[in-house]
Amino acid sequence: MAGEGTTMRVGAEEEFHVVDLITRRLAARADQVLEGLPPERFTDELQRSMVETNSVPCLTLEELARDLCGMRRRLLRQADDVGLGINAAGSSPLVDMDELRVSPEPRYERMLDDYQQLTREQLICGTHVHVEVEDRDLAVAVAHRLTPWLPPLLALSASSPFWDGADTGYASYRTLVWSRWPTAGPMAQYDSAAEYEEMVRELIRSEVISDPGMLYFDIRPSDHVPTVEMRICDSNPRVEDVVLIAGLFRALVTRELEALRQGVEREVHLEAVRAATWQAARSGLEGDLIDPVGGVPRPAPVVIGRLVDGLRPQLEESGDWDLVSGLAKESLAKGSSAERQRRAFAHRGRLSDVVDLLLAETRACDWDRPADDSPSYRSAAS
């Protein structure tokens, strides 16, 4: 069985906003940032104001952190050279819709034709975490069984309180924007990879989606690499939070594989998962979350603390306990990115200050090593 007796590799895809440093608005100039960068590690996205980086598959979280920081630095140098800024957040506060366009690729242009306003307003960035599960039947089973544990990870990433110049009242408004797509949300249960693939073919036959990359589930078996891919999280300006989420997700996958091996049944109610996801998007780390055990609201630090403590055996086995538990305490102490953005806005009432905070936090990093050009996890689902 995948993962038995070994540490599974983990990787991440990060999406970034491209920002005009004069207006602090999104800038449709991703092509200038990507020019000269290796396409297997740096790629365009649906919107011309977005870029994506793709990590190598990593055995240790420290290796992942160094790789992510190296790619950020390389991306930032390229943006500096053309007078642009880069920020990692679920949404960027200042936008001029009339200035933005989808990337000039047939797939994206078809999406614009098919989905219209959904495509035009897809000005959101996420972090996708992959964990290696080579048995596709197991990947399908694990993806469904893990859905109740994803909302706390969303809360840790929440970084999109502002939308089109206004405070939405949500910590992750990206979640609400994302939820409008016809295949968004938690993944249902399938008895096998074959049954899952038949569902994919049925959706493509319906022509509501055009390819497997348009399955926008919060978690899914990847269609191009042997992994389980979590897609629920906002992009986050602090690499430390990305590493924390990656470590927790890998530990959750490890624990669930062991439960499957032992024949443990899981009863998952998707309605409850959707409600918990909405609550996490609303509150972030500053309010109550729905505890995956018991389904009742508890303060976010309690839910996160229980999550981390419950994964201690898996985190110790992979050598991640000290790092992950320390990062969790740090994240709770700092508060969500959404809360930090609101504090920045409250100081002078300027959204440009929020953008400047995101630019600065995205640039800062404690791990220091240049990215290389090794094979990477690359999304086919943008």
Rank of each mutant, 00 (worst) to 15 (best):
L84R: 05
L84Q: 01
L84S: 11
G85E: 05
I86V: 13
I86Q: 02
N87T: 07
A88Q: 09
G90M: 08
G90H: 13
P93K: 01
P93T: 06
V95W: 01
V95P: 05
D96S: 04
D96V: 11
D98I: 14
D98Y: 15
D98K: 14
R101H: 15
R101K: 11
V102T: 08
V102S: 01
S103M: 00
P104I: 03
P104L: 04
P104H: 06
P104F: 12
E105M: 13
P106D: 03
Y108W: 09
E109W: 06
R110F: 13
R110Y: 03
R110A: 09
R110D: 01
M111D: 04
M111P: 04
L112N: 10
D113M: 14
D113V: 11
D114E: 06
D114C: 12
D114M: 11
Y115Q: 04
Y115E: 10
Y115R: 12
Q116D: 11
Q116N: 09
Q116I: 08
L118V: 03
L118S: 06
T119V: 08
T119Y: 14
R120Y: 00
E121T: 15
E121L: 14
E121P: 05
Q122E: 13
L123H: 02
I124H: 04
I124A: 03
C125S: 12
G126C: 00
G126A: 10
T127Q: 13
H128Q: 07
